[in-house]
C-alpha cells in the first residue's frame, strides 16, 4: 500500500509508524489478544498478574499491621504466644510453595495446549532472522516460492505453521497479539503456529537482543480474507516487469551498476543478490528497513541515500550517488509493485 499525496485518508495510510504500531493495529500487548494462541497466553498473563498483585497487597497489609501492633508495646512473650513461628511456616513457606507450583502447572498446561496442534496440516511460512530484518518465505505458494521481507501475510481465522531459523545470531519472533515468543536459532529450525482471528495488521518485533539495531527489527503481520490472500500471493509470485519509463530505465541501470544488485534480488532482472531483502515487490510493503519507516516516497528516497545515518550498523551501506541517479533509482524502485 503506497501513500502518496494528501494525508488523513485511512488510518494505515496516513499515520506514521508509531500509529501503525499502536492505534491502527491496536497496542501490541498480550492483553489485547487477537488469536487463539494469544488468548491462552492472555489468560495466563492475567492470572499471573493477579496473583502478583494479590500477594503484594497481602504482604503489604500484614507488614503494616505488624508495624501498628508493635506500637502497642506488647512484649516478646505475647508475640510468641500468638504463634509467630506458625505464621512464618504458613506465610513464608507453604503459601509461596502452593502459589508457585500452581502458577508453574498453569504455565505448563498452557504451553502443552499450544503445542498440541497438528502442525503438519497447516500451510508453512518460513521466517529467517537477519541482523536486522526478517526474511519471509512462502514455500507452499503455487509456482515459484514467494520471498518477501518484514511483512507476513496470513489468512484470518486459519492457523499457519511458522518455521523459524536465523542467518546470524539468535533472534526471537514475537507478535504479542497473536502468539508467544519463539527463538530463531542459527542452524536449527524451530516451529510454532499462529492464528489471527480477524483481518487486520498486527505489530511484531524481535524479542531477543541481537545487536545495535535490535530495536529497529520489527515486522507487520497482515491477516486478510482467503480471496485477498490468494490475490496477494499471485501478485508476489510474479516477476518484476521491466520498466518502460525512460527515467526508471536509467534507474535500473544505476541499480545494477551501483552495487545494489549484488545484495538485492529483483526477480525477473539481473539483480540476484542474497544479502539484503528481496525487492521484487518492494512497493507492496507497508514499511521499509524492518518497520523503521512507513514506505513512502520520501522515506524510500532518504533510505537509499543515507541508510547508515538512519540505521547505523545495518547491512545496507550508504552509497552517495549524483542527484539525478538517486532520482532515477527512486523511479525504478517505485515500479517494483
Amino acid at each position: 500500500m503506497k501513500r502518496r499525496g494528501g494525508i488523513g485518508r485511512t488510518c494505515a495510510e496516513s499515520l506514521a509508524l508509531a500509529a501503525l504500531s499502536a492505534s491502527c493495529a491496536g497496542a501490541p500487548s498480550i492483553f489485547s489478544s487477537a488469536g487463539s494462541a494469544a488468548h491462552r497466553i492472555g489468560v495466563l498473563g492475567w492470572i499471573l498478574t493477579s496473583i502478583a498483585i494479590a500477594v503484594t497487597v497481602i504482604v503489604a497489609a500484614v507488614l503494616l499491621g505488624a508495624l501498628v501492633r508493635s506500637r502497642a508495646g506488647q512484649g516478646e512473650e505475647v508475640q510468641r504466644a500468638r504463634g509467630g513461628v506458625r505464621w512464618i511456616v504458613i506465610g513464608g513457606v507453604i503459601a509461596p510453595a502452593v502459589i508457585l507450583v500452581a502458577a508453574f502447572l498453569f504455565s505448563v498446561l498452557t504451553q502443552s495446549a499450544l503445542a498440541d496442534s497438528p502442525l503438519r496440516t497447516m500451510p508453512t511460512v518460513q521466517v529467517i532472522g537477519h541482523r536486522w530484518w526478517w526474511e519471509v518465505r512462502y514455500p507452499d505458494a503455487p509456482g515459484q516460492p514467494v520471498v518477501s521481507a518484514n511483512e507476513l501475510h496470513v489468512v484470518a481465522g486459519r492457523r499457519v505453521r511458522l518455521e523459524l531459523t536465523s542467518a546470524d545470531v539468535i533472534h526471537s519472533f514475537w507478535v504479542p497479539r497473536l502468539a508467544g515468543k519463539t527463538d530463531l536459532i542459527p542452524g536449527q529450525h524451530n516451529t510454532m503456529w499462529m492464528e489471527a482471528d480477524r483481518p487486520g495488521t498486527f505489530w511484531g518485533e524481535c524479542a531477543e537482543y541481537c545487536g545495535v539495531q535490535h530495536a529497529h527489527m520489527n515486522l507487520v503481520v497482515v491477516a486478510e480474507t482467503p480471496e485477498q490472500h490468494d490475490a496477494w500471493l499471485a501478485a508476489q509470485n510474479a516477476v518484476a516487469n521491466a520498466p518502460t519509463d525512460s527515467v526508471a530505465k536509467r534507474g535500473q541501470i544505476v541499480f545494477e551498476r551501483a552495487a545494489c544488485a549484488s545484495c538485492h534480488t529483483v526477480r525477473g532482472s539481473k539483480a540476484q543478490g542474497r544479502i539484503g531483502p528481496d525487492l521484487t515487490h518492494l512497493e507492496s510493503r507497508r514499511t521499509i528497513a524492518a518497520g523503521t519507516f512507513p514506505n513512502t516516497r520520501g522515506n524510500l528516497a532518504g533510505w537509499i541515500a543515507n541508510a547508515q545515518t538512519l540505521k547505523p550498523g545495518s547491512g545496507m551501506p550508504t552509497i552517495a550517488l549524483p542527484a539525478a541517479d538517486s532520482r532515477a533509482l527512486l523511479a525504478y524502485l517505485e515500479t517494483l509493485r
Binding site: A16, T292, F293, T296, R297, G298, G302, N306
Partner: peptide, 28 residues
C-alpha cells in the same frame, strides 16, 4: 499540529534532521 503529522507521513525525516519529529535524523 497537522503539519507535524504530515512530515512523518511524507517521510521528510529520512533526509532532514527535524526537531520534534520521531526518527527524523536524515543527513541528506
Amino acid at each position: 499540529a497537522r503539519g507535524e503529522r504530515a512530515i512523518a507521513a511524507y517521510g521528510c525525516g529520512t533526509c532532514h534532521m527535524i526537531p520534534g519529529i520521531r526518527e527524523a535524523t536524515g543527513m541528506v
